[in-house]
Design a binder for these strands. Structure first.
Lengths: 187, 187
DNA sequence: ATGCCTCGATTGAACGTTCATTCGAAATGG
DNA sequence: CCATTTCGAATGAACGTTCAATCGAGGCAT
């Protein structure tokens, strides 16, 4: 019952930050919601900032893993990208707290883009997939961030709208948009 | 030398928030950078939060105005949307502080989406433009937020990458992406 | 088994700092 | 001379962090 406490702290942090932001979640509240004392948090994490960074790291890894669900790498173009696109959208809407956390983090001074060049294992596989499509002549050879914004960036934006309750995308609309994104970067 | 002070405060706030975030910009620092005393800020604004909201409101209005530069409403499809798209991108990259501020604000608990239904004058004209294209059968009749994410949302995402220094879009690439966005929502 | 010892886990009150905000007084200007 | 603007020290609350004290499971000697 020792590793449990660490995740309880992270989960409480996620809850509170998604709801009230970094500024609005004092360590004392994290302690209260996770059912531990304030002091013990500093046994598991060096500081509040370290806790914030660690939570980001874990969510980002889960996200990378989720993108590869259904083995899109084995599918032909454009089914591979459609699969990844739908995976991204599904992750976002099924994990609204995580999505809000990621967005707050990446738009805050906590986020250091230089530190982001550490493409993890899963992201690396995605980059390789794109390289293959470059070679096959199916995808325009645009910079990676451009391709990202034209595809997964749209999934993120739409998911945020759905989380906010502004729209509700049904399955056929999703297919439609995913295909539009594929077309936008196809050669 | 009295109305100047209000904008000096807002400008200092913009500087600091873009650089260190809401959490990292105490009122005392805003006072120092704007060259006024801490107390006087409360003569012009009810609270720090009120200052934050007011700055958002002004930036959002400037943004809406910038979108209509070059009178895109008088252009035929798809030149009208291309013009708006490029206007958005240009506003973002030429106003990096404002862009970072908008993003932080809209991803924070300060942002109330319900309060966002107040489409201001300029946004209203854009909505009307889209309605016209619906009638003309040139644009798919998707929900407004979906159309937004497929077009201006991409401009925002790309501009953020350029502000972060990850990519530099040249004029022809921009034209290319803007056209791809138009195609994505064309019928 | 029993009592003892040890050590990491855990507590929550206390600490020092920082923050947003207030306020009485001084300056300004019409 | 009044109203408005400006100052900056004072205030009190809230925060992140620390720390001395307590707990409790498990090894060890008897």
């Amino acid at each position: 019952m020792t590793a449990d406490k660490e995740t309880a702290i992270l989960d409480a942090m996620l809850d509170l930050v998604a709801e009230r932001g970094f500024h609005g979640t004092p360590v004392s509240q994290v302690a209260k919601r996770s059912g531990v004392s304030a002091g013990i948090i500093y046994h598991y994490f060096d500081s509040k900032d370290a806790l914030i960074h660690e939570l980001y790291r874990r969510i980002k890894m889960d996200y990378g893993r989720a993108l590869l669900a259904g083995d899109p790498l084995s599918l032909p173009w454009p089914d591979n990208l459609t699969c990844v696109w739908l995976n991204a959208f599904r992750f976002y809407v099924e994990h609204p707290r995580e999505t809000l956390y990621l967005e707050q983090y990446e738009n805050s001074p906590y986020y250091d883009p230089a530190h982001f060049t550490n493409l993890d294992e899963n992201m690396g596989q995605l980059a390789a997939m794109i390289q293959t499509e470059f070679a096959a002549g199916t995808v325009q050879e645009l910079p990676f961030p451009v391709l990202y914004e034209l595809t997964l960036g749209v999934a993120l934006g739409l998911a945020k709208r759905q989380i906010a309750g502004v729209v509700v995308m049904d399955a056929s609309e999703l297919e439609h948009v995913a295909e539009a994104c594929c077309r936008a970067i196809a050669k």
